[in-house]
């Protein structure tokens, strides 16, 4: 008998007296806040990420200001033109090797959705965000979040996300508490997370 049939057989005999539950479980909603964008910004800042607000017209300048002088910057191929135009000398990812990405100082992307309750940004790696490696290897991640992308909680994010795409949920810079449970920001992922919230701020 194949391992598959054997395991499924054991599962079925273990559950012989058990009725399955056909109805999906819905969890209770979290606390609703009036100003999602302000709540989001506050929660992101709690992770010791940098958060700045700007009006739609100022986004290019704000992004440029988030990058140190002389930084080698990589951008995904689908970064909107208004952002792209603000950045001189950027390298557009066309399948750069891991080593080439490792030579970059920063990456600038958009995101798919942002979660206010947890201060989380979710990338679905569409062309305005790039493939996963692009937002992982460089040490500084500048991420542009439009105010209308902010949702209240995890359930709202799951509802808009397409699980068929690879997703990266980011809540602050990389961190570890593995040494005496003392939190240290910055391990393997980007050590600096710079979030730019575009649109009406709270």
């Amino acid at each position: 008998m194949s391992a598959r049939d054997d395991i499924l057989g054991r599962v079925r005999s273990a559950l012989a007296a058990v009725e399955p539950d056909p109805a999906p479980v819905t969890a209770p909603p979290g606390t609703r806040v009036a100003d999602l964008v302000a709540h989001f910004a506050e929660r992101v800042a709690d992770y010791r990420a940098t958060v700045v607000h700007c009006a739609a017209g100022d986004v290019a300048g704000t992004v440029a200001a988030a990058l140190p002088a002389g930084a080698r910057v990589v951008v995904p191929p689908g970064l909107p033109d208004d952002l792209r135009s603000a950045l001189a000398d950027v390298i557009v990812d066309d399948g750069l090797s891991a080593d080439a990405l490792d030579a970059m100082d920063a990456v600038v992307t958009c995101c798919r959705v942002a979660i206010a309750e947890t201060g989380t940004i979710v990338l679905d790696h569409a062309p305005d965000q790039g493939r996963r490696a692009v937002t992982l290897v460089p040490d500084r991640h500048v991420c542009v979040v439009r105010a209308d992308q902010v949702v209240a909680d995890v359930a709202d994010a799951l509802a808009v996300l397409d699980p068929g795409r690879p997703l990266t949920w980011i809540s602050g810079p990389s961190a570890t508490s593995d040494i005496e449970l003392d939190r240290v920001e910055g391990v393997h992922g980007p050590r600096v997370l710079h979030v730019i919230v575009v649109g009406e701020a709270g």
Binding site: H125, P163, P166, T168, W169, G189
Partner: peptide
């Protein structure tokens, strides 16, 4: 409130 990174993937992209 949330861990720094959560990765999800469905097969090959």
């Amino acid at each position: 409130r949330m861990n720094p990174y959560t990765s999800t993937w469905s097969g090959v992209t």
